[in-house]
């Protein structure tokens, strides 16, 4: 950013005087030529800087389109009556972590579940506030392998909204989900990981 402001100033300072090149000495002509090139190069710099910031939205678009990086759709899936595929088993494992700054214990009640694609299941996660203040947290899910991310459909999840816990309060939080029968044939195991972050308050 600092860099951007700086080069921008430079671009303005280096504005070449408009003079007719024929009247100039060799040195002045060279100066003029140099300044023109400098201005072009500074635009290149500005361009790369903008490119860096443009990568942020591009990255998100790419990730949510492809499910790359294990990003799941963080909204309730439509409960279309998916047909249960009894011929397949999928093993879904759960892991959890608590990020620094959040004084909670947080873990899944069961570490894995075996189910058929299409079959709706509920699993419970337990969170306990071990501080003596009210604490608000936000869970962020991630799925491995990334290509399967789009196939894990959540109907109801504690990660859809922020969770608030009173001092010492313990809460069982449900996750209702199914695995879409469109799950690629070579995937038999998936891991769903939740990281609980201190919620970022808007007022801050």
């Amino acid at each position: 950013m600092v860099c951007g402001v700086y080069v921008f100033n430079m671009a303005l300072i280096e504005e070449p005087k408009v003079e007719r090149p024929e009247n100039l000495t060799a040195k002045e002509q060279l100066d003029l030529k140099n300044k023109k090139l400098v201005r072009k190069l500074l635009w290149l710099v500005v361009g790369s800087l903008l490119f860096a910031f443009a990568l942020v939205p591009l990255y998100d678009v790419l990730c949510s389109l492809t499910g790359l990086n294990g990003k799941t759709q963080n909204s309730a899936a439509l409960l279309t009556k998916a047909k249960v595929d009894n011929s397949r088993w999928v093993n879904v494992q759960f892991t959890s972590s608590v990020m620094p700054g959040l004084g909670w214990n947080f873990y899944p009640k069961q570490t894995s579940i075996r189910l058929h694609p299409g079959q709706i299941e509920t699993v419970l996660f337990v969170a306990k506030n071990i501080t003596n203040e009210v604490v608000v947290g936000q869970a962020v899910p991630s799925i491995t392998p990334g290509i399967a991310a789009a196939n894990l459909k959540k109907i109801e999840c504690f990660c859809f909204v922020r969770q608030s816990l009173k001092p010492g309060e313990e809460k069982e939080m449900p996750l209702r989900f199914f695995v879409s029968p469109e799950l690629p044939k070579d995937v038999s195991d998936m891991t769903l990981s939740y990281s609980f972050f201190p919620a970022v308050s808007e007022s801050k």
Partner: peptide, 27 residues
């Protein structure tokens, strides 16, 4: 072509650290 991208990335870090943006914050 590339130094400005680094400059952009560390600037995002800086704003994440101090100005409440969440470029790299999953929460």
């Amino acid at each position: 072509a590339t130094i400005p991208v680094l400059a952009g990335a560390v600037t995002m870090l800086l704003t994440d650290r101090h100005f409440g943006t969440h470029f790299f914050d999953a929460a």
